[in-house]
Design a binder for these strands. Structure first.
Lengths: 226, 226
DNA sequence: TGGCACCCTTAACGGAGGCTGAACGGCTAC
DNA sequence: GTAGCCGTTCAGCCTCCGTTAAGGGTGCCA
């Protein structure tokens, strides 16, 4: 999950991004509207958190422009206590949810989960695909009812594929969503991760949930095989 | 258990918080409504004790606002003798229980235990996980029927993990719930505590209830191993 | 059918993260 | 005052896992 965090209070920005990263998000930071706009245009984002009280371009304007340019990722806005009226303008500008500062971090996480779920079309944090069940809250995979231990990166790859089940995910999409900004282009980390995932999920290859589409990427198979 | 204590009588505030801390609660103090509201919003609380007679924002208002913002932790209100009628308003505002001042400290403890039990999803103060049973009322652990003595901090760690059994608990989550506000980030106290816990619970490693998820945190194992 | 990308798999490595024994020092209880 | 307990720190060791690299496989095109 690649997330854009826009917040002009630098200590808060640092603290939040650190905790979000610990939750497995790849965080892009911005402390002003111009930078936020740039990052929002340039990066393939899954989510954005935007503080409305920014020094230069207002958060509202950032949201309006991004939406005008066709960006559809969910946006959560943060408003200061006294200015909760802004939330209405924010939602009209194209935000999806709001949170009044100060807030508990857990509350933020809950909202983010809800947004990610809503956009990805998921009804619950359990991704249930018959023999495979991914519990996003517990960060745990079960295959045929048995827990399958995954490492942090294996989990991230699988979660992203399952969240976009049925869709073709290009390798660059995957790497960009899983890693921070810069990563080595000619590396085969992803292939190694996918390989390990397939082996862990079913050594016998009876499920084969991850398809390879040559030259295009990977796809998590939604429908039952016949 | 992280607890918010709101009381404008400063000597009483100090005395109560000290005794509550001795009982193993991590106590956030506030002597006015504004601060109470701030703390209630900012911290991941498990319980709150609110005196209704506050100078600025009334305790009632604090409760109403917190509830309006979706906070669901149990709230116990304190009312002065002559004003016991306030208890009705308090309960209507969203409190869960009340106590009339003056009261015996043991009475307060009993109510808190009852509240903590009622919420949090545990039906009883006994967390029974087969070979391990944690008695939250007595703050005592039994393994295979034998009592296992724990120190205060060991107990807090284990209780938090067991209360969130199955979930991945990050180290920062754990420290935040166990310690007061500021703690040293690059310390390995938690690892030491977990290490001691594991050793005390089963020196032979036949239960191994606390899993380590590298880079992500710890998880108390719910399901039986096969 | 050959050749060339592209992909899979395995093995190995190195560093970060986690574990633990030992020691210290402050607090408490007696 | 003093002995013991306990929370914390530190250092050294170990394990794990993310990454790289290499060799073989497979599909797609001419």
């Amino acid at each position: 999950m690649r997330l854009l965090l826009v917040e002009d209070d630098l200590p808060l920005l640092a603290q939040l991004s650190e905790r979000l990263e610990r939750q497995g998000y790849a965080v892009e930071r911005a402390d002003n509207g111009t930078e936020a706009l740039y990052l929002g245009r340039e990066f393939p984002l899954d989510l954005a958190i935007v503080d409305l009280g920014l020094p230069d371009l207002s958060g509202l304007e950032v949201i309006r422009r991004l939406r005008a340019e066709g960006k559809r990722f969910p946006i959560l806005i943060l408003t200061a206590r006294g200015r909760w009226q802004e939330k209405v303008e924010g939602l009209e500008a194209g935000a999806d949810d709001y949170l009044v500062k100060p807030f508990r971090f857990e509350e933020l996480l809950a909202r983010l989960n809800a947004l990610a779920r809503r956009s990805g079309g998921w009804a619950s944090p359990r991704l249930d695909y018959g023999r495979m069940v991914l519990d996003t809250a517990r960060q745990a995979l079960e295959v045929d009812g048995r827990p399958v231990p995954l490492t942090a990166y294996e989990y991230r790859v699988l979660e992203y594929l399952m969240l976009h089940g049925g869709q073709v995910i290009s390798k660059s999409d995957l790497t960009e969503h899983i890693y921070e900004q810069d990563y080595d282009r000619d590396s085969n980390v992803l292939e190694v991760l996918v390989s390990r995932l397939r082996r862990k999920i079913d050594p016998d290859g009876t499920i084969a949930p991850i398809e390879t589409l040559r030259g295009r990427g990977y796809r998590f198979r939604l429908e039952r095989r016949q």
